[in-house]
Amino acid sequence: MRINENTLLEGHKVALVPYNENHVTRYHEWMKSPELQQLTASEPLTLEQEYDMQRSWRDDHDKCTFIILDKQRWADPRVQEEQCMVGDVNIFLTDPLEPSLAELEIMIAEPDYQGKGFGKEATRMMMCYGITKLHIRKFQAKIGLDNEVSIAMFKKLGFQEVSVCKVFKEVTLEMMVDESIQAELLDDSGYVMDMDYRQARAADATKRHGANAP
């Protein structure tokens, strides 16, 4: 989705940036993991297919994707952006007849960052982005039954279990965004900064040049 191709969102722990070509190699290495393939219901792809997927996520009108960065590491001019990647968060517009409905996915791929609040903050930031920029009024999350950590996180965020599919071994959780929930989400995420990613990268390149100068 082109709407977020120049968007940078900064929270307390994470920064969300558009999924670009420079992220693909690291992402491809993540998705070689059988565990991540199972948790995300994904098939292994070749590197070329992964680049095709990145272009699809950028261009398709029904997908919105951010790469999750460790904000603290990313602030260090000596560290490349790809080295700060910890996961991704996605919105899929699954029903053309109901454009305010979105399926939400979150993946913290780096084990050292799991269970430390990175996924929760990224999810809340993405929900606020979906509400304000995409006019989402209903979120769904479809999670494997054995992914108890993700199920618990979404329930803590206020999602309600609506169905269980034993065939696909997944549970569907939903949240309707009424005025009170919208106000609460936006208030809780009032600290998030929405910036121009191009300007941030230009400033970052300047910092790196200065850090590497003799």
Rank of each mutant, 00 (worst) to 15 (best):
E21R: 15
K13T: 10
M175W: 01
L185Y: 03
R2D: 01
R78G: 14
Y51H: 06
T132G: 04
A15F: 02
E121W: 01
I68S: 13
V24K: 14
C128K: 08
F139Y: 12
L45T: 09
D187W: 11
E103L: 08
D60F: 02
I151S: 04
Y113A: 01
V177E: 02
V86F: 04
I108R: 05
N6K: 13
N212G: 13
T123Y: 04
Y51N: 00
N20I: 10
R208V: 08
D188W: 07
N4Y: 07
D188C: 01
E103N: 12
N90H: 15
Q72K: 14
K207S: 11
D60S: 02
A203P: 02
T46G: 05
Q83W: 04
I181N: 05
H61W: 13
T206H: 15
K156Q: 11
I136Q: 14
R78L: 14
K133W: 02
H209P: 07
E43G: 06
V17T: 12
F92S: 06
I131W: 04
N22I: 03
M127G: 12
E82Q: 09
Q83M: 06
A41Y: 04
P44W: 04
C165M: 07
A202K: 07
M53G: 01
E81Q: 03
P18Q: 11
H209N: 08
K63E: 10
R198D: 08
K71C: 03
C84E: 00
G130Q: 04
I131Q: 00
M176G: 07
N147S: 00
Q80E: 15
R78W: 12
K120G: 11
Q140N: 08
C84Y: 05
A213Q: 11
D88I: 04
L173H: 04
Y19V: 14
E81V: 01
E50S: 01
R73T: 02
D60R: 00
G11Q: 05
D76R: 12
G115A: 13
E174C: 08
A205L: 14
Q38V: 02
E10K: 14
L8H: 11
E179Q: 14
V24L: 10
L16V: 07
T25Y: 05
K142T: 13
A202F: 02
A200G: 07
E148T: 02
E48R: 13
P111N: 08
E21T: 14
E81N: 01
A109N: 03
D204M: 11
T65F: 06
V149F: 01
E179S: 15
K156G: 05
Y197L: 03
A183R: 10
K138T: 14
G11K: 01
A102D: 03
R198T: 09
